[in-house]
């Protein structure tokens, strides 16, 4: 009566599923197709899906980090390659830091009873709702003024001597400034998700480790961490996604040398020529999320449901 794995269903359901898949993937495929077209073909719509793909747009976008000189460019005008390097540094470092700090905090919140535990866990939950736009004003003010080291002071003077430059040493305009706010922004979410994974680790395992003479940190790194790998993967993907995609705070903090890719896309999206180049940049920005979706969708879905259902 029924197939071993799948039930026999009305073909209308297959049609519905096909339409839904087409709707969710279609726009992304459109982006891919357009990034491989010349500007004229994008705006004229000639050819539709039948066109000669060209990687010219990608060459234009990345011309400052290519090892060869693309022949259609006389000189390298748009320098998006540097922005990609910035984006990668910022996203990777902030993800790593958030994960380390977040797992430790989540572990303590689950396993230990200590003073201030309840208020801490409550406040991590509460700050999840803060929109980045709300942080814009204070971050702009603090990172430019209060969180600066005087250039005549001891540490500030040392940094200025090593790295050069004028004025006080500020967090604004540095990679670390952007990384700091991303880590802080993502921590509440990571702690929240990981708590639901750590609760499932049987306490007896940890006790066994303790009996064998492991300290609390050894127990944590050697026993607990390997057991919550799926949770770590989910948390890593969500953190990376936010740090990689974020625009507003980065645009307030970054200067010319620390710009990330989303800023470049917003700044150049309204210019009419170079449409293909923008699409190519957008496609490159979309590649890591697409890879995550294709290879780790199970972890993403687990993380999403853990965050919402068990909240």
């Amino acid at each position: 009566m029924a197939a071993p794995t799948h039930d026999r269903q009305n073909p209308a359901f297959f049609a519905l599923i096909a339409v839904l898949i087409f709707m969710s993937v279609g726009p992304v495929l459109l982006l891919l197709a357009n990034s491989l077209k010349l500007d004229v073909d994008i705006t004229s719509g000639a050819g539709g899906l039948l066109f000669m793909p060209t990687i010219r747009n990608y060459e234009t976008a990345l011309c400052d980090i290519l090892w060869y000189q693309p022949e259609h460019l006389r000189f390298c005008q748009i320098r998006f390659g540097g922005a990609f390097i910035n984006s990668i540094i910022i996203a990777l470092v902030s993800t790593a830091l958030t994960l380390i700090m977040g797992t430790m905090a989540a572990y303590a919140l689950v396993r230990f009873r200590f003073m201030g535990r309840d208020s801490l866990s409550l406040s991590t939950l509460a700050v999840r709702m803060i929109p980045p736009a709300v942080l814009l004003v204070p971050v702009f003010g603090l990172w430019n003024n209060a969180f600066c080291l005087d250039r005549d002071g001891l540490v500030g003077g040392m940094i200025r001597e090593i790295f050069g430059g004028r004025g006080d040493v500020c967090l604004a305009g540095t990679h670390s400034g952007i990384i700091l706010i991303y880590v802080a922004m993502n921590l509440p979410f990571v702690i929240w998700i990981l708590q639901s994974f750590i609760v499932q680790v049987p306490y007896s395992l940890e006790e066994a480790a303790r009996v064998d003479g492991a300290g609390p940190f050894q127990t944590f790194f050697l026993v607990v961490l390997p057991l919550i790998k799926p949770g770590l993967a989910a948390a890593a993907i969500f953190t990376f996604r936010i740090a990689w995609n974020e625009y507003l705070l980065a645009s307030a903090l970054a200067d010319r040398n620390t710009m990330t890719v989303p800023i470049l896309i917003v700044n150049n999206a309204s210019e009419f020529d170079g449409l293909g180049t923008i699409f190519a940049t957008g496609m490159l920005l979309a590649i890591p999320p697409i890879l995550f979706t294709l290879f780790a969708s199970r972890q993403i879905i687990t993380g999403m449901t853990a965050g919402a259902v068990k909240g």
């Binding site: 799948h6 269903q9 599923i17 839904l20 992304v28 982006l31 995609n245 896309i265 999320p289 879905i301």
Partner: peptide, 27 residues
């Protein structure tokens, strides 16, 4: 229900959420 193609849908359906909002705006 248990239909073939459901897991593909569930995988690809996450795509719009994962892509940068900036890129979504662009498309």
């Amino acid at each position: 229900r248990n239909i073939r193609g459901m897991s593909v849908l569930r995988t690809l359906f996450i795509l719009p959420m994962m892509i940068a909002p900036v890129v979504v705006g662009l498309i």
